Simulated assay, not measured.
Amino acid sequence: MKKNVFKKITAIVLTLAMTLSLAACASSGTSGGTEQKKLKVGVIQTIENGAFDAMRDGFIQELRDQGYSEEQMEIVVKNAQGDASAMNTIAQEMSDGTYDLVATVATPATQAFVNMKSETPQVFIAVSDPVKAGIVTTMENPDYNATGTSNPIPVAKIIDLSKTMTPVIKTFGIIYNTSEVNSVSTVNKAKEYMTAQGYEIVEAVVTNSSEVKQAIDGLLSQVDAVFIPNDSVIQNAMPTVAEAAKAAKKPVYGSSAVMVNSGALATVAIGDAAIGATSADMAIEILKGKTPAEIPAVAVEATDTVINQTTSDAIGIQISAELSQSATIVE
């Protein structure tokens, strides 16, 4: 009698175990495998502007194009809207180990996440001088668990373009925010090259976008042309800069195609979406098993001349036939 009861109990236990096992297999979608973990990638953006938006979108689109669908990868985008405190909070949230990788757009966001010293791998997008910004010790051997793309501003090419388009320039004005290391680095390179070319230089410094109007008005009264570095504060106020320069009939040479779209006369620039896509390819290598230290950071060369036809007409600058054929002309 006891043996029969024991056999029945054993049979029930075995049946239950098999049922649970089959249910687990069914939920995994395979006969004996486990469900693939959904990846989670964070994107931190310093501020919303055309250049940074294009970089972010290029990064995300490349991930999708390379097969990382919404079912396979969740992408969380957070924008600090230019607020340093908010950016640090976002960086802290994304450094908690719940993300498989974090991408950072431009220098301030990249510095914020590197400073977290997170174990989460990081890929940065368009940092003009990663070494001076303290993001990597060398481009060839990235450390701090971060690698990515650099967009060094082609100062010499931009100034040489100004010689072609506006050869009468003798004095250059530069307006920038000293708290952005990327901006300061570019300004120093610009001043060095301008001085070597015989230009006089006048500087105007701002701390926020509300100071730009007064600063640019004062600067335009002293110079023949203005150079704008890769500065998020000035870029955010480019319509103000462009309108003041048009009224003064003086050219503004920017550091990105977005600045030209916003009214600057011209630049030599890097494709923003393309540099985002390049960073995404590096991110994919990390997601497949490499560490950031195994992937050298790369500088993406600027090759695209961009000219604003409306601005050119407004300040009386004639675009040569040669430039019309080789440059991208925007309205």
Rank of each mutant, 00 (worst) to 15 (best):
T278M: 14
S69P: 07
A237F: 01
S320I: 01
K132A: 15
T305R: 08
K191W: 02
T207N: 14
A126H: 05
I75C: 03
A103R: 04
Y176D: 01
T137H: 09
T207S: 13
L219S: 09
T186Q: 14
I158P: 00
A237E: 08
V212A: 05
A106S: 15
K250H: 01
E180S: 06
D217R: 04
S118C: 04
K250Y: 08
I90T: 07
V102W: 04
K78H: 04
L14K: 08
Y253L: 10
A146D: 06
A91K: 00
S312Q: 06
K38G: 08
T207K: 11
A80H: 05
S69E: 04
N151A: 09
I329T: 07
N141V: 11
V233D: 04
Q197F: 01
G32S: 15
D272C: 12
A225Q: 05
N236M: 08
K290F: 00
R64G: 08
A103Q: 04
Q72F: 01
K170A: 12
A23T: 12
S256H: 00
A126W: 02
T186S: 10
A237C: 01
M73A: 12
Q325H: 13
T15F: 15
M238L: 04
I315R: 06
S320R: 02
E35M: 13
S28D: 07
I135R: 00
N308L: 06
T328L: 09
I317P: 02
L22T: 10
V212T: 08
N177S: 12
S69W: 00
E74Y: 03
V233I: 14
S183I: 07
G271V: 10
M194P: 12
L14C: 11
A248H: 06
S21A: 10
T89Q: 13
T138K: 07
A299L: 00
Q325L: 11
V77H: 08
A17H: 02
P251R: 02
A244R: 00
E301T: 14
S326D: 13
K189L: 14
P251V: 02
T164E: 15
A297K: 04
V127G: 03
T98I: 04
G32D: 15
Q197A: 14
L219C: 09
P108N: 06
Q197L: 10
Q122E: 11
S27P: 08
S27G: 09
G316F: 06
V168K: 15
V131R: 00
G276I: 08
D65H: 05
M238Y: 03
P108T: 02
S324W: 08
A293I: 03
V168W: 12
V102I: 10
C25Q: 11
P142Q: 01
A112V: 01
M259I: 04
V306H: 02
V298L: 10
Q214S: 15
